[in-house]
Amino acid sequence: MGHYQNLFNQLNRTALVPFFVIGDPDEETSFELVKTAIDSGADVLELGIPFSDPVADGPTIQKADIRAMKAKMTPAKALAFIKRVSDYKPLPIGLLVYYNLVFQYGVEAFLADFKEAGGTSVLVADLSIDDADEIAPAATAVGLETVFMVTPNMTDERIQKVVEKTTGFIYTVSLLGTTGERTGLSDRVKPLISRLKGLTQQPICVGFGISTAEHAKEVAQAGADGVIIGSRIVKFIEDNLDDTTEMKKQVGEYIDQVAKIIARL
């Protein structure tokens, strides 16, 4: 059984998965923030390597990428960062990355080094399931789990392909669009979760647009194994760039609040 499946079985509740861009707003603060997230109740970490052209991301994460790149974050440094995180506490770590960064590093070398650093799974934002084999065999060979996206506009036939290629969890995109905060929960997410439940036993983590504790609760109640919160958390960084103490405090309090609500369900 995979790391994720194991964890989700043990938890017996929905897992909380915060997302950070590695190196945002700078390497040290970023590390402090990730530690804060772990201490405040994160069950799994989803970490992204900053890229110059993140087409799957909305404005909040685009700005985070720019901040991290200005602070000189690179793929190699990001892997070292992941090592520090897993030394601090060995939570499962899912990586979100754009293909060109992996391609330039060398697919096999990148995946091996990520595994070595303590990584658990990899998701390439701009690889569709048709191109799963550019990454999946090499990931499996080094002992990583694979994660692919399912979107509300996907046919059952394509979802079936995702099910076949996934060894970690199914990254369930709650809406049609990019990452970013939303006021309401997309009305497409619950039908999608039920559709997935009818097609597979694999763990389902829901992301994109999950912004409030209430959204997280609804997604959890709809049967998600994990809820991924990105832009809402990254926004605390953006809003407190001149006060890292406040930044950490807000990130910690928010994660703690969501964790408690999920735990009570």
Binding site: A56, D126, F148, M149
Partner: peptide, 22 residues
């Protein structure tokens, strides 16, 4: 996708899954 859209090794469709149906 019906075709791979390759010119030798070049080309393809490296996009997020959500764009594939379009």
């Amino acid at each position: 996708m019906k075709h791979k859209g390759r010119y030798g090794t070049f080309g393809g469709f490296y996009v997020p899954e959500v764009l594939i149906p379009a």
